[in-house]
Nucleic acid binder design. Structure first.
Lengths: 224, 224
DNA sequence: ATGCAGCTTATTGTATACAAATGGCATTCG
DNA sequence: CGAATGCCATTTGTATACAATAAGCTGCAT
């Protein structure tokens, strides 16, 4: 992707994810163009992409708005994600290479390290976690599946305020990864899929809890 | 969608589906613009959309080519479709309204009529079949799921020559629909999902057979 | 007051000109 | 003869001007 267009896309996307562009608010092409320092043309490209990714929705007269997902919508996304990632895990179990297994072990060791210390390094955990999952998707070797997963994986990040990361949850995540590694090693696709399903479902409930806390806080801020 | 943009999208899409634009061949924005009688701007929009829908792919230097799917790729698409439609059926079983059930019955009766006569009306069958599936997806009430299904449902249409429609197959399809209707009536999501999985898998094998016949014919045409 | 008509303004859609980047070809040098 | 390099042609990317459309507002009529 070319310079201006990529910049516009990344800028707008991160403005949505960070909450700088509030859910439900209208988006004007020219305003974004100025914010990104490019013309409307690349902005329009970006908006189309973001619309396909459901970060943005348009009303019937083509005006764009930042998507505003309810908790139900997000559960829906998580449900699809669980199904797709379980499918990926199943496929990966048949196809994963020794090298990829090694990489999985590496990232799993790293993310364990990130939380198994007095001062947990959550960003580091998240990064290696992301890479762990990416390797599984790559091993599944289905471009379509990868593209669909892309659509449901980053949506929940739209939580506006800083999330509460429950350490106990992260440790359980790491434990799931351990089990996935064994399932891959045994080439047991059914097992891998089952573990993955639980792994994502837990993520949803952790997210939902953080989300409701967040919502409470915002409500009381409004009241004050 | 506005006039020029919509025209460009529909034109290009149908040129791909009809084989007028050959799989693997390069696509130039200006050529398409002339063909569609619009400027490059709406053509570019369309190309982006079609790229997201995987009808078009781009190499690393941004040149566009008509996607050329192998049978393996198509099996992959069908596999995802089976999973997603089964999921849709399961959700639909819980949510479907009496009215929607009535509509399903109507379309199923129509498609039965289309093939239960001396001179089968295949296009009519396909149309009611499409609507039958659309109602189930609507009843599943998940925008994301619907959008994902859109991505895998129309891909196999890229068969270049006229398809052989095996009547026996269409009758079995109709039978599956009957069974789906009972499952929905009993609100048995698991049953509905199972029937749907088989329904789509059969569609794949019917398609694969037609595809290989098609490929053979093309080969011998080349040889001649 | 309320609702509607017509105007005004805001916003998106399209065309086009120009800039940047890429690929192919020919030429040159090892 | 083969590989690398520079130039030219082709193609895509970006900016901008203008057209079309939709929203909001004002004022008038009921």
């Amino acid at each position: 992707m070319s310079r201006a267009s990529e910049r516009a896309y990344n800028n707008i996307r991160s403005m949505i994810l960070s909450g700088e562009l509030q859910p439900g608010s209208q988006i004007r092409e020219e305003a974004l163009a100025e914010l990104c320092g490019v013309s409307r043309t690349p902005v329009r490209d970006s908006l189309r992409r973001l619309e396909a990714e459901m970060f943005i929705r348009r009303n019937d007269s083509q005006r764009s708005f930042v998507a505003d997902w309810s908790l139900d919508d997000l559960e829906d996304a998580f449900q699809l994600r669980a199904m797709l990632e379980a499918h990926a895990a199943k496929r990966a179990a048949r196809r994963i290479t020794r090298e990829q297994l090694g990489q999985l072990r590496f990232h799993n060791a790293q993310l364990k390290q990130a939380i198994d210390i007095p001062n947990p390094d959550v960003p580091k955990f998240l990064d290696h976690n992301r890479q762990f999952h990416a390797i599984i998707v790559a091993a599944a070797a289905s471009e379509r599946l990868a593209s669909m997963l892309g659509q449901v994986t980053e949506q929940p990040v739209v939580l506006r305020t800083a999330r509460q990361y429950d350490l106990e949850n992260l440790r359980r995540s790491h434990h799931d990864h351990d089990e996935l590694l064994i399932a891959f090693d045994k080439r047991d696709g059914e097992w891998a899929a089952a573990v993955m399903t639980g792994h994502i479902r837990r993520a949803f409930h952790a997210y939902a809890q953080a989300h409701s806390t967040d919502t409470e806080i915002r409500k009381s801020n409004l009241a004050a």
